[in-house]
Write a protein that binds this DNA or RNA. Structure first.
Lengths: 255, 255
DNA sequence: CTCAGATTGATACAAACGGTTACAATTTCC
DNA sequence: GGAAATTGTAACCGTTTGTATCAATCTGAG
């Protein structure tokens, strides 16, 4: 069932970004890059990233800071690139939660091996190990989506059955309201796939979802089409983080 | 009756992990690995591990700490790998509850022998000697499962008979609510088996369990299907240990 | 304003996937 | 030892979802 993994390379040097992108693409991965924290966060929001390759030495927010950020806000494995071969860096990196690290200069083949190894590991785990701090209930217009229960309740209080694809698409939209998402982005975010030429599956999926949640699917009010751009979810979305059930107690603070 | 045992190798050095994994696989075991405590805990949560091979010297949480954790929270035999040939380590290790230990460098064949010996020993004991600190009563929706008694009571107060497979599957779900579990994972967690191609036994088991606990088995509310992914248990689960409320297994602070 | 090309929506269809039933093999329990 | 229950396998069928196709709509050039 596996699609090629989507890797995000974060480094402030363009030459390194391009080198790595080229090399990894050639080896069958889908690759995006970012020149710093801002771009990285943006990418995380608009693409389904499977693994991040992150340079430690960067102006502005450094790699360790970003690594910690990823650890706290996403559930994506990180491989750190460090210029110093120092043990301290390694230890800090692993403590902060990097999944592996590599000291520069390194052989691209080595990086490739590490990436494959980390992916193998992370895929043997439940892919949806829940991002930390995710809301469990999302409301929009007068609709309510119970995220964990995968249950959508209409303004009338009726539960509307959602297929797996409906659900994924809806969640994708709800997490990014007012953001115009291209078909490519939507495909990546919902299924982790890359669009074929003439790929219309997203159009179709949108059409199906509209039939379920739009009052008048011919004149959609929530999922608007942006001609030449993609789709936007325009309704106001509010999220609630409910009481934690025992499964997400990652706390070790006293209560 | 035995399926091959599932062994978890915990070591911070990749080369050692890979070496051991390869060697043990070649000798008929199913093997997973972890590079530290975090990954180890994740693996314990998502796979049915029969034995842990644990390196003592590791950055972050060291092997002895992890060994104690396993002893307190799981019922899985541990073999410690120690770099020092010191008597103290051995004593500490055995005091902490390791089932055996090996000093590095060691011959893989030696490890193999110890593993087989420990497994033989642990299997001659009651296999399900219950994890320490496990809740005895689990409630979900308005259902109650008395874990030790293997008794499930419906919202109406009626006791619903569960077969062994029903029980194992239900407990598997109750311990991992909101977590999407693949058929492979479910098969491993419930029966310790590896899926054959076209293995539909889990589908069937889920279907049978749904008939017993879902109000409308055709529109399941608790055990949801994730197309292409597996199944999720979506109801909120609370657990009780005797009379204290149940905190999940992530704690390592004294209470 | 009109028309051609491009873009999007809707429908039809096929392949893949999952639910269910029946049945056989196995175990459990009198 | 035999009946009943359990559990894996196979088969059938409904649903889901991607692709193809055609109609509707939009855009911009003339």
């Amino acid at each position: 069932m596996e699609q090629s993994a989507h890797i995000l390379v974060v480094d402030d040097h363009r030459d390194i970004r391009e080198l790595l992108s080229k090399y990894l693409s050639k080896n069958g991965f889908r690759v995006s890059d970012a020149d710093g924290g801002v771009k990285m966060r943006q990418m995380l929001k608009t693409a389904a990233i499977d693994l991040i390759v992150l340079d430690v030495m960067m102006p502005g927010e450094d790699g360790l800071t970003l690594c910690r950020y990823v650890r706290e806000n996403e559930n994506i494995p990180v491989i750190l690139l460090t210029a110093l071969g120092e043990e301290t860096d390694r230890i800090i990196g692993l403590e902060i939660g990097a999944d592996d690290y590599l000291t520069k200069p390194f052989n691209p083949r080595e990086l490739l091996a590490r990436i494959k190894s980390v992916l193998r590991r992370s895929q043997s785990m439940p892919r949806e190990a829940e991002k930390p701090n995710e809301p469990e209930v999302l409301t929009f217009d007068d609709w309510t989506l119970y995220v964990h229960q995968r249950e959508l309740v209409s303004p009338d209080g009726v539960t509307v059955p959602l297929s797996a694809a409906d659900y994924r698409l809806l969640v994708t939209f709800l997490k990014r309201p007012t953001m115009v998402l291209s078909r490519d982005q939507l495909l990546d975010l919902t299924s982790g796939r890359t669009a074929q030429i003439f790929d219309r599956s997203i159009d179709n999926q949108v059409s199906r979802l509209r039939k379920k949640i739009e009052e008048d699917p011919k004149n959609p009010r929530m999922i608007k089409t942006v001609r030449g751009g993609g789709y936007v979810f325009t309704a106001k979305v509010t999220g609630k983080v409910e009481d934690a059930t025992f499964d997400d107690v990652d706390e070790e603070n006293d209560i």
